[in-house]
Amino acid sequence: MYQYSNGKKMRYAMFTLLSAAVSLLWTVQSNAAQVMLTDKAGAPLSNAVLLVDGIPALQSQQYVMDQVDIQFVPRVLVAPVGTLVDFPNSDDVRHHVYSFSSAKPFELRLFKGAEAPPVAFDRAGVVVLGCNIHDSMIGYILVTQSPRFAVSDAQGIVSLPDLPAGNWPVSWWHPSQLEQPPVALGELDLNQAGQVLSLPVSSAKQAPTPVLSPLQQRFKKAAE
């Protein structure tokens, strides 16, 4: 109990730290393209991924799928094909991370801290992550060949730094797509300031809406 509440506090601290870093980035890289993503209802859509093709990739960076407070952090990670992703365990409990996704089925059996070796994602696709002992833990790694990509933050803002001017093929993905590949939006000039992209996602708040069981659906249908 104490530990749990302590973890919550910690998460809150991390979140404020992160947003501070973003705003720092925002102010430093003044040429970054910023697009707001909304759902069908026009509400800011977080954890959505914008992918831009046709332009060279930026410098490769470290891809980490952390586990904090029995949650995958970030919830959605975009990684280029062929990258190694670290699965550090920031919790003081063990996790058993697995994925049965065809893009990369793997299993990291009960590990702690940095015990787990990095996993290489060499095929494009969606990899749904789960923890065998913590059913509530769901994470997504979108393995893509697109050079540029970004995940929308809590405000639905997607920031793509150093995006060359002009129209580029843009596609999007959201956890509600499950293992479906990203959906193309056509060529767009994302550098235009104040752009808002409305995506055909129904629930903006909860990324993975739990699917009703067929029996329940039937029952509901019958009850109606």
Binding site: L178, V211, S213, L215, Q216, F219, A223
Partner: peptide
């Protein structure tokens, strides 16, 4: 199929009555 309690349903399967319980398989999504 009709709910009997929070967890149980009563079902008619192949003309026979059943008490039915269900569970969703998550991997990790259903």
């Amino acid at each position: 199929l009709q709910a009997f309690s929070e967890q149980a349903l009563i079902a008619m399967i192949d003309h026979r009555p059943y008490l039915l319980v269900e569970a969703v398989v998550h991997a990790p999504v259903p």
